[in-house]
Structure formats: C-alpha cells, structure tokens
C-alpha cells in the first residue's frame, strides 16, 4: 500500500519535473531548463554513439548464433569463466600496465619536480618533448620504439658497433622490454601533465622553511613536498593506468605480450571468429575501467583530473 503510494508519488514528481522543465514559470524552473538544454547535445551523442552500442555488446555476448545475433546462450560467459587462458590474459594486462604506470608516475614526478623547482637550461625543450607524445597514436609509438631498438634501430646499431655483436641479436623492440618502453613512452607524458598541475599548487614557503630549519633536500621532499603532491600522484596513477589499459595500436604492432586489447582483437580476427567472447571480454574490460575510475576518483580531488 505505502510502496504503491510512494511509487505513484515519485512518478507524479518526475512528471511535474518534466513538465515544468519543458514549460517553466519560475526562474528556478527556467534555470533547470537551461541546464537540460545545455546537456542535451552531449547526452544525445553519448546515447547514440556510446550507450546503444554498449547495450548491443551485451546482446552479442548472449547471442547463440553469432552471425545473425539471434537466440540466447551463456556460452561466451562460460568460456570466459572456465578457460584459464583468459585469467592469464587478465593477469598479464594488470601487472604489465601496473608496472608501466608505476614507472611513468615515478619519472613524471622527477620531471615535474625539475620543471617546477630547477632552473633548467632548456626548459622549453623539455616541455615540448613531454607534451608532443600525447598527440601520437599507438602505432606511431610502436614505430618509434623500433627506431630506437629495432633491427635497424639507433641504440641497437650503436651497441652493435661498440661491442661487435650482431644487431639482430641485440634488437629488443619486439621483446617485452620494447613493448614496456612503448607503454612508458605513451603514459609518461600524461602522468607528467597531471603532476605539473599539482606542482604548480605546492606551497613553496613550507619547503623553504624546512630547508632553513636544516632538513636535507631528500628530507624536505619526503616530509614536505610528497604529502602535498600525494593527491596529484593518485590522480596521475589512476589516469595513467586507465590510459594504459586502452593501449592497442602499440601492442598490435609489437605483439610481444598478450594483453586484453590484443586478445579482443584476436577473438574477432579471421580464423578464430568469436564475437560473443570478444563482446564478453570487452564488457568485463569496460566495467572494470569505469568502476576503477569512479572508485579511484572518490579518493582524489576533482581539480587534479586532466586527461
């Protein structure tokens, strides 16, 4: 009885809200209409290009016939849950991206620290070098790694000339270390961008006071600077980790580690065509990214977030 009453009441309230938003009479209602109008284009796009395709992905993962997408079956999810290979892919992805994130954020702290505190001789060059790779797609990053470490790579050939070993033996672009450097190449600039914003807001008076009171540079950094930049480090780690999970082009070209994006690609390739399994992996992957981002951002300050 009371449940039905409250349900009717909330339906009525939503209906009133909708009608006053459409035909406002007070200034408050007009403001609500303005907000709705301003948000409408974005949500129209997000629904057409984002939510509907994602809903379709759910349908595909339950499809019995994967060519016409008809019938219902739990086959794809069963395959996903029972095949150990998929758990290995998940583990591969998590440790690899986690390690790349840790390295990128640590290096990002060093670069942001130096840019903010030191009088570097070529500061503009460093800033340009750090911001340029943000625009590069994964396939270009993969190529740049082969420029450094491939069979004809600069570093490979330099070491080969010095040590006399064969360049083909030294080439590591298509080894897992090459892929790791590719990840760091893509992720480091993103981490540095977030951390530069954090460093700009650090209270330098406290650091100067610590130094004047006799703390060494490391003590000042560890006890004064680090607590102040901790929210920035957390935000950088979250954004870097989720960017790392989305990397596909680099791994498609270098092919040295079976991460989730490559697995999804393989599932829909000719020869092993299983779009229902690909959709199921994709859904787990998207849900993980969204949950991770929202849970992670609960713990950091919103202002530190930058793409």
């Amino acid at each position: 009885m009371s449940v039905r009453k409250s349900a009717t009441a909330s339906v009525r309230r939503i209906a009133t809200l909708a009608s006053t938003t459409a035909r406002p009479t007070t200034e408050r209602e007009r403001e609500r209409r303005r907000i709705a109008v301003l948000c409408l284009p974005f949500f129209a796009l997000a629904i057409v290009a984002g939510f509907v395709p994602l809903a379709m992905l759910v349908r595909i993962s339950f499809a019995e016939d994967t060519i016409w997408m008809v019938g219902w079956s739990f086959g794809a999810w069963e395959t996903l849950a029972t095949t150990p290979a998929y758990r290995r892919v998940a583990w591969n992805t998590l440790w690899f991206v986690g390690l790349a994130t840790a390295v990128s954020v640590a290096l990002g702290v060093a670069v942001a620290h130096a840019l903010e505190k030191y009088d570097l001789p070529a500061e503009r060059v460093v800033v340009a070098a750090v911001s340029f790779p943000i625009a590069l797609p994964g396939i270009v990053v993969a190529y740049l790694i082969t420029v450094l470490l491939g069979n004809q790579g600069v570093v490979t050939n330099a070491i080969a000339t010095v040590t006399g070993a064969s360049a083909l033996d030294l080439a590591s672009a298509t080894a897992i270390t090459g892929l790791f450097l590719g990840y760091v190449y893509s992720l480091l600039p993103r981490a540095t961008m977030v951390l530069r914003g954090t460093y700009a807001a650090v209270n330098t008076q406290a650091e100067e006071a610590a130094r004047a009171l006799g703390a060494s540079r490391w003590e000042t950094f560890y006890h004064v600077t680090l607590p102040e930049i901790r929210p920035g480090i957390a935000a950088a780690a979250i954004l870097t980790f989720r960017s790392g999970l989305a990397i596909f082009g680099t791994v498609l070209i270098l092919q040295s580690h079976q991460v989730v994006t490559l697995q999804i690609h393989n599932e829909i390739s000719v020869g092993s065509y299983a779009p229902d399994v690909a959709a199921a992996i994709g859904l787990v992957y998207v849900v993980f990214i969204v949950a991770f981002t929202f849970v992670g951002l609960r713990f950091v300050d919103d202002d530190a977030v930058e793409v």
Binding site: G50, L57, T261, A279, G282
Partner: peptide, 20 residues
Amino acid sequence: TFAILPLVPGLILGIAFIQT
C-alpha cells in the same frame, strides 16, 4: 566525470559500433 573521461576505449566502441 562522465564528460571529461573517455570511459569507453576506442577498440570496444569500434567493435560495438559496426554491430549496432
């Protein structure tokens, strides 16, 4: 948060797009 973070990776969006 929804508007400033690319929540769906391009690869997944591409696969879902051509099926939808």
